[in-house]
Design a protein around this nucleic acid. Structure first.
Lengths: 350, 350
DNA sequence: CTGAAAGCGCTAACAG
DNA sequence: CTGTTAGCGCTTTCAG
């Protein structure tokens, strides 16, 4: 606008602002960082100078001295059947669960002006890259959602002393903070509901049993059913995917043709199961009652809509981010775990 | 292990490596950055020293001097019905289209050691934040997927001279690179198929008409049908969501009870439409043929499986990332557009 | 082919 | 309350 503005080529620096305001760099720095002890009048002058020059702080320079980047990584770790046409990250995005976690993290971080760096770590090489990436100072820490309990990344993060928080209890006992849901309580809710409905021949489709959550849901369900007088619950293992739900239901039906109730360890598999049930002419919930787990978008998208166990994934993810920020701000902070309680959502399928 | 390693507190710097290798910082810097003109023997010594000290370059220091961050932003811009329980980012993650874009971007970037920063820009405030964020040097540029044609962000990016590439042609004519698919060709493919099947009373469910892609699909479909001798094609506008597909189909059915074919502007809406059709006892494809668009996961998840128009979203996204990297490396590079050709995928619904 | 030296833009003591 | 002074760790001329 006026000729006072420097050519667009070089971005204005603190120095430029200081000169324009007739103060020192330090003073400008103080007002930018909201440190008090700056004369209100001068503050005003400085602010105007900032606006006039169009100054924007240089992040690299700042983090060089503060040793903080103000960024955090959202890493998804796991195994997944690697395959040219269907790489790991693509599988991850296809799972509504991941979307909810990401959404919760973003929802918490964004009002604080921070945006997550998205990383995937499905191979040893990728995991090494993640660690090295963080050590280079691309981010101050990581929130991690892992899809298998044998994942070595949590331990690697701890060993590298990188602030991090997990979604779900780690497979091995290591000093790291995490958030989780009371899977067994959720499974019990499902069992109680099925029994209350009058189901007598109940089976279950579990998740992949190398995932702790899947183990807990299965164990919790069996325990609760045992308490109701049902000592044996047939089980088929799935992979938490739609297709594996179909396959599992198919098998369950052939092995237990008389079943009248099934607890499925997640909604995606339950959706697949529903389809197979219909194919076989079983009415849901009249002939077979189905209870899912997660209350994901699949629960309301399927027909009949799923009765399921809801856990507050977004809230849990937000808490995970909150904990991470605490650990970043306060390196000595002791580890914590935050366990959320699930609840039963009754819809049409049971 | 040995007492030679410094206490874990301070990360080793170039200086440390140089000392360990008995050379200068400059030399170490050269071997790290793969600059030739370094004696092979010294190179070896330096490499060993790097390994011994566990040195990792400091990104902030590097980008302070290179003026490059080595990071790029993946920004999703748009409107979306903001609502406490269902914020924009959560809607985005629920759409399989976004997952495919993200997956394509990640697939391209990851082998190159770069990880995207995820940002959402659904309000003016958020958009300003995105610009300021980029100007601060959090990333070297942005790939942008926008959900509405009036989005001001593309222009803002151009004005701020920030390297960026769009997914889809911008709503206004501005000098910016983008990738897109030939929507009209895709719509024509659908029309041809429906006509070839013998459909005579055809209607369409369009996407939100403030989205260019939706406009093009509708116009392309109508043009092609006109060429086949069908001058008038009833249309109901949807929002590219599952629920809006249901609503739209419901309306179409009441207004055009005799229809025997429908082109739905994306798979998610088509999935909703399928459900309504079944509800009303119409067999698909026998009574009503349905063609979707996208070939997203919804296409194979719905029953019957969708006949749809496939476009290579992942490839397009990868190309978008590739273009961005080019623009970052070569600031003067002229703008380009890359248009991909769609194809018809015949499954069960038509 | 290698080293010395000059910053990149910012914050954080430390004086005043 | 404000200015001066050191660097943060790295790349990059410029000499040698």
């Amino acid at each position: 606008m006026s000729e006072g503005r420097p050519p667009v080529t070089a971005a204005p620096t603190l120095e430029d602002v200081a000169r324009a305001a007739g103060v020192s760099r330090a003073t400008v720095s103080r007002v930018i960082n909201g440190i008090r002890n700056v004369d209100p009048a001068i503050q005003e002058t400085v602010r105007r100078a900032i606006a006039d020059t169009g100054y924007v702080p240089n992040r690299a320079a700042r983090s060089l001295v503060t040793r903080r980047t103000g960024a955090i990584a959202l890493v998804v770790s796991g195994a997944g059947e690697e395959d040219e046409a269907n790489p790991f990250h693509s599988q991850v995005f296809a799972d509504p669960f991941f979307g909810r976690v990401a959404s919760g993290v973003v929802g918490f971080l964004r009002p604080r002006g921070i945006h997550p760096i998205l990383m995937f770590a499905e191979t040893d090489e990728a995991r090494t890259q993640v660690i090295s990436f963080l050590r280079q100072g691309y981010a101050d820490g990581a929130v991690l959602v892992s899809t298998q309990s044998r994942d070595p990344l949590p331990r690697q993060l701890v060993e590298a002393a990188l602030p991090s928080v997990l979604f779900a209890r780690p497979g091995e006992a290591i000093p790291i903070s995490y958030v989780d849901v009371a899977h067994r309580t959720g499974a019990k809710l499902a069992a109680d509901h099925l029994v209350a409905r009058g189901c007598r021949r109940v089976a279950t489709i579990a998740g992949p049993l190398d995932v702790l959550a899947a183990q807990d849901r299965l164990a919790g369900f069996r325990d609760a059913m045992a308490a109701h007088g049902h000592p044996y619950i047939p089980c088929v293992e799935g992979q938490f995917t739609y297709a594996s739900g179909e396959t599992a239901m198919e098998r369950l039906l052939s092995e237990q043709p008389g079943l009248d109730g099934v607890f499925v360890a997640n909604d995606l598999m339950a959706q697949g199961a529903l389809l197979v049930l219909r194919h076989h002419g079983r009415r849901v919930p009249e002939d077979v009652a189905v209870v899912g787990f997660d209350d994901s978008s699949a629960a309301t998208a399927s027909r009949p809509m799923l009765t399921t166990i809801r856990h507050p994934v977004e809230d849990m993810a937000a808490e995970m981010a909150r904990l991470l920020l605490e650990h970043v701000d306060e390196p000595g902070k002791p580890m914590t775990s935050v366990i959320f309680e699930p609840s039963l959502v009754v819809r049409e399928s049971a």
